[in-house]
Amino acid sequence: VSPPMIGLLYREVNCDDPESEQAAMVAMDYLNKNLFRGYKHALNRIEKVKVWPRRPFGEVFEMELDTLETTCHALDPTPAANCSVRPLVEHAVEGDCDFRVLKQAGQFTVLSVKCDSSPDSREDLKKMCPDCPVLAPLNHTKVVHAADAALKAFNTQTNGSYFQLVELTRANIGYLSRTTYVEFAMAATDCAAQEVTDPTKCNLLAEKQYGFCKGTVTEIPRQEKVSVTCTVFPPQTQPDNSPVASPPPATLL
């Protein structure tokens, strides 16, 4: 049994109220600045808002936000506002986030965030687009091989640093299993790409430099065709050291 009067403690705010939207924007900004894997997310819908009084001052916005994956990797310095939402035909991924945002003296500060993400159902995707490839498991043999082959192709063609795989983020296996498409993040090492003999002896640079690649491996009789396009981002400080809206500490799960 709930304690008496507990239902009267918070006030309900319209989800599309400018105050709710302002809190949601601060929350999404915080989330994207503190991601270090996967893709940046965009706000899709404000699901629920409760505003609790906070002693001695301020209010806490308890919010549930629906988000959508964008095409920008978390390590991509592009502001999230400039990132495109991944369309449904690319097998969209949605996020469900619970935020607690403090409003004090007119300023919003994120206190905590917890997000889960999940891809759209295969059935829904196939109903809407029967020929669209669905996301493949990232540990699938073909997927792992495609990422290795694409990264190797990139390192063979570059005159700069040798890049290591950071994470495989997305993959699908196309028509008749002959074409495997992968997206992955990579990081520069202290080895030169054209001189590396043992990649296990290469170390990440102190000033981290990341890149993001899209690669395709197509099986043709007795051989394979590899194509890869990579973007190398300017050197940056690690995301966990990057400045975050004050004050810390917020909980990020």
């Binding site: 309900e12 599309d16 899709n44 939402v85 969209a92």
Partner: peptide, 27 residues
């Protein structure tokens, strides 16, 4: 006692405070 004469009330828009609008699409 004072009784308000019956006045026809126009049906106003139904307010759905939450959830809010989709900014992109429904998944």
């Amino acid at each position: 006692s004072v009784v308000q004469p019956s006045v026809p009330v126009a049906a106003g828009p139904v307010v759905h405070p939450c959830p809010g609008r989709y900014r992109h699409f429904k998944v």
